[in-house]
Design a protein around this nucleic acid. Structure first.
Length: 225
DNA sequence: AAACGTTGCAACCGCTCCATG
DNA sequence: CCATGGAGCGGTTGCAACGTT
C-alpha cells in the first residue's frame, strides 16, 4: 500500500478560504509551481499538495477564462468528446482558459442533456433509436443526469463499455472512432459537424491524431497480445 | 412561506502514468 | 529491468443555490 500524499490529519479539507487562496497565489507568484508535495508547507498552507494543485489549476490560475461556454466551445467539446471520449484534460487543452474539471462539469451538467434532447447518445455519439429515446417526462425534467457514470443510466447500456481504467478509455475512443465511421457510412448525426478545422489549430489536429494513433496502437496490443 | 427536489460546481479520492534512481 | 514517488487524470461526492409544488 502506498503512503498517502500527505498527512491527512494535519490538513484542511473542503472549501478554500480567501486567506488560503492568497497564500497560494502569493507563493506561486514568487516561487512558481514547482513541487506540489512540498508546496503547502513552504507556502504555510495546511493543505495537501494535490488540493493546492487542484485549486490553482481549476480556480486561481490567472489565465483562466471563467464564465459561460460559447457555442463554439460547446461545439468543439462535443466534437472532441466524440473523438477522444472522456479525456477531459486533452479536450480542455484545446480550449484556452478552460480546465479539465470545468469541461467535465459542463459536459455532465449541460452537454449530455443537450445531446440526449437531440436524440444522441452522449456516451458514443450515436443516434438513439426511437425505442431508446428518453420518455418525454424524463427528458423534460432532465432527470437522472446527476451522476453520469454510475448512479442512473441515461440510456440503455448496450453500447456503453464498463469503466475500465487500464485501457478502458481506449475502448471508448475506439468506440467513438467506430461510431464516427458509422456516421460516415450512413446515418449522420443531426447538427453535429465533425469537421475539426473550425477553431482548432494545427497542433490540435496533431494532438487529436496522436491520441487516436496511440489508442489504436493500444487496442492493437489488446487485440493480439 | 415552507418543504422538497434539482442543478451546478468545487473539491476529494483513488487510480494510472511517468520520471528517476 | 525494477521499485518508488510525484504528478496528473477521471470519477464521484458534498453542498449551496435555485426552482417547483
Amino acid at each position: 500500500m502506498r503512503k498517502p500524499c500527505c498527512d491527512k490529519q494535519d490538513t484542511n479539507k473542503g472549501a478554500w478560504s480567501k486567506q488560503e487562496d492568497e497564500k497560494l497565489i502569493n507563493y506561486i507568484r514568487t516561487h512558481g509551481e514547482g513541487c506540489w508535495r512540498t508546496l503547502p508547507q513552504a507556502a504555510g498552507l495546511l493543505r495537501c499538495g494535490k488540493s493546492c494543485r487542484l485549486r490553482w489549476i481549476n480556480y486561481l490560475r490567472p489565465d483562466l477564462k471563467r464564465g459561460n461556454f460559447t457555442e463554439d466551445e460547446e461545439d468543439l467539446i462535443i466534437k472532441l468528446h466524440a473523438l477522444l471520449g472522456n479525456r477531459w484534460s486533452l479536450i480542455a487543452g484545446r480550449l484556452p482558459g478552460r480546465t479539465d474539471n470545468e469541461v467535465k462539469n459542463y459536459w455532465n451538467s449541460h452537454l449530455r442533456r443537450k445531446l440526449i434532447n437531440m436524440g444522441i447518445d452522449p456516451n458514443n455519439h450515436r443516434l438513439i433509436t426511437h425505442n431508446h429515446l428518453p420518455r418525454s417526462h424524463d427528458s423534460s425534467s432532465g432527470a437522472s443526469i446527476r451522476s453520469p457514470a454510475s448512479k442512473v443510466p441515461v440510456t440503455d447500456n448496450t453500447n456503453i463499455h464498463p469503466p475500465e481504467k487500464s485501457g478502458g478509455d481506449n475502448d471508448q475512443v475506439s468506440d467513438a472512432a467506430s461510431s464516427l465511421e458509422d456516421e460516415q457510412c450512413g446515418h449522420k448525426l443531426p447538427d453535429l459537424n465533425l469537421d475539426l478545422t473550425i477553431s482548432v489549430s494545427a497542433s490540435t489536429v496533431d494532438k487529436v491524431e496522436d491520441a487516436r494513433r496511440k489508442s489504436q496502437k493500444q487496442s492493437n496490443i489488446i487485440a493480439d497480445p
